[in-house]
């Protein structure tokens, strides 16, 4: 299965989906006008990944900003991963990375934690 790499741009994050490592990473900001269009390749990659996943799947979300249309896409991604986690084919860990002064980003992570029954780790990094 191919890896997915989308370079960082002004309004969109760096996306790295690595099959061998079972790793999905977003870094940067995610404020595209049309988030569904941007995240479409990620949805597709995950749909393929869940058919033959690694034993463990690590998801690292390190976003500086994201808009509300991205928040829908993130939830969609978590829901796809939840099904796989629930089925027991791969153990998922979401690491939600936020900068130490960014309470809003921590709260956003906690919002997802409240909605999705996946293990979340909140990780504070210094700016």
């Amino acid at each position: 299965m191919d890896n997915l790499f989308i370079p960082q741009e002004n309004k969109t994050p760096l996306v790295q989906c690595n099959y061998a490592l079972g790793q999905i990473q977003f870094n940067g900001r995610s404020i595209p006008e049309n988030s569904i269009e941007f995240y479409e390749p990620v949805f597709k990659w995950i749909d393929n990944y869940v058919l033959q996943p690694q034993k463990e799947t690590q998801v690292n979300i390190h976003l500086e900003y994201f808009n509300t249309s991205t928040s829908k896409c993130l939830l969609d991604i978590f829901k796809k991963l939840y099904q796989m986690h629930q089925a027991g084919t791969s153990k998922v860990l979401i690491t939600w990375i936020y900068e130490e002064d960014d309470e809003d980003m921590l709260e956003a992570g906690e919002d997802y934690q409240a909605l999705i029954m996946l293990p979340f780790a909140m990780k504070k990094v210094s700016t």
Partner: peptide, 21 residues
């Protein structure tokens, strides 16, 4: 949270969340 979780994607992906946010 309710809107994020329950509402279907609007065509543009916003889904009315913006104003609440």
């Amino acid at each position: 949270l309710q809107t994020l979780n329950n509402e279907f994607y609007s065509e543009k992906g916003g889904g009315g969340l913006g104003i609440i946010d």
